Lab assay of single mutants.
Amino acid sequence: MLYVKVKTEDGEELVLEVEGMTEDEIREELAKAGFKIEEIEVYEVEP
């Protein structure tokens, strides 16, 4: 499983499960949803 931890400019932290997306695609999708991203951390969790 691939997850991203996202910190927004307003200090909110989100953890999202993503599969088959690049970091650029993740940033693009979050921007479309109205999030202003300060930091993204991508990590993989073994089942």
Rank of each mutant, 00 (worst) to 15 (best):
M1W: 11
M1E: 04
M1C: 13
M1H: 13
M1V: 14
M1S: 10
L2Y: 14
L2K: 14
L2C: 08
L2G: 06
L2H: 14
Y3P: 03
Y3E: 07
Y3H: 15
Y3N: 13
V4M: 02
V4N: 00
V4H: 00
V4G: 00
V4F: 05
V4A: 04
K5C: 10
K5M: 05
K5I: 11
V6W: 05
V6G: 02
V6D: 00
V6F: 12
V6A: 03
K7T: 14
K7Y: 11
T8E: 01
T8D: 04
T8H: 03
T8S: 06
T8C: 15
E9V: 12
E9Y: 08
D10A: 09
D10R: 07
D10W: 11
D10L: 08
D10P: 01
G11E: 01
G11L: 02
G11F: 02
G11I: 01
G11W: 01
G11N: 03
E12M: 13
E12I: 14
E12P: 03
E12D: 08
E12N: 08
E12Y: 13
E12R: 14
E12Q: 12
E13P: 03
E13L: 11
E13Q: 08
E13R: 04
E13K: 03
E13S: 08
L14A: 03
L14D: 01
V15K: 04
V15Y: 14
V15F: 13
L16E: 00
L16A: 02
L16H: 01
L16Q: 01
L16N: 00
L16I: 11
E17I: 15
E17V: 15
E17F: 15
E17R: 15
E17Q: 14
E17T: 14
V18C: 14
V18Y: 14
V18K: 02
E19L: 10
E19K: 13
E19M: 13
G20T: 03
G20W: 12
G20A: 05
G20N: 08
M21T: 06
M21K: 09
M21E: 03
M21R: 10
T22N: 06
T22L: 04
T22A: 03
E23R: 10
E23S: 09
E23N: 05
E23H: 07
E23P: 11
E23K: 08
E23Y: 13
D24Q: 13
D24K: 11
D24T: 09
D24L: 09
E25D: 05
E25V: 04
E25F: 03
E25P: 00
I26V: 06
I26H: 00
I26E: 00
I26Q: 00
I26M: 03
R27A: 03
R27F: 07
R27I: 10
R27N: 02
E28F: 11
E28R: 12
E28M: 12
E28T: 09
E29D: 05
E29Y: 15
E29V: 15
E29N: 07
E29Q: 11
E29F: 15
E29C: 15
E29S: 12
L30W: 03
L30F: 08
L30N: 00
L30D: 00
A31R: 12
A31M: 12
A31N: 05
A31P: 01
A31C: 09
K32F: 04
K32L: 06
K32Q: 06
K32D: 03
A33G: 05
A33V: 06
A33T: 04
G34M: 02
G34Y: 02
G34F: 02
F35R: 01
F35S: 01
F35V: 06
F35E: 00
F35Q: 01
F35D: 00
K36V: 08
K36G: 05
K36W: 05
K36S: 07
I37M: 10
I37L: 09
I37Y: 11
I37G: 07
I37K: 08
I37E: 06
E38H: 12
E38P: 02
E38K: 13
E38V: 15
E38C: 14
E38M: 14
E38T: 14
E38I: 15
E39Y: 14
E39R: 06
E39W: 15
E39L: 12
I40W: 07
I40C: 03
I40P: 01
I40D: 01
I40K: 01
I40G: 01
I40V: 05
I40Q: 01
E41H: 10
E41M: 11
E41W: 15
E41K: 07
E41L: 12
V42Q: 03
V42S: 04
V42L: 07
V42G: 04
V42I: 14
V42A: 04
V42M: 09
Y43P: 02
Y43W: 11
Y43E: 03
Y43D: 02
Y43N: 03
E44F: 12
E44M: 10
E44I: 12
E44R: 08
E44C: 13
V45A: 09
V45Y: 10
V45G: 08
V45N: 09
V45E: 06
E46M: 13
E46V: 09
E46P: 13
E46C: 15
P47L: 09
P47H: 07
P47I: 09
